[in-house]
Amino acid sequence: MAFSNEEILEGLAEIVAEETGLPTDAVQLGKSFTDDLDIDSLSMMTIVTHAEDKFSVRIPDEEVKNLNTVGDAVTYIAGAQA
């Protein structure tokens, strides 16, 4: 069963909130992980690890650097669900 984009955003927001302490509603599609959410590379890899687990997808390391915004991540995860 595939997750909808809304479900992916919601799940990702929960993961980011757990990792950073930010409120879930701060995690919006247009937000940059580094510039807006102040997430460093270790935290980003932690978020990726949890997201892979939660959505049963694989996000290769070379893709992670292309995930600038929350929206990029939602789009990638949605497309990676087969």
């Binding site: 270790l42 890899m45 932690t46 690890t49 892979e52 687990d53 694989r58």
Partner: peptide, 10 residues
């Protein structure tokens, strides 16, 4: 290994 958390060493 894919589930190992990146903060493990620090």
């Amino acid at each position: 290994a894919r589930r190992m958390l990146p903060m493990t060493v620090p």
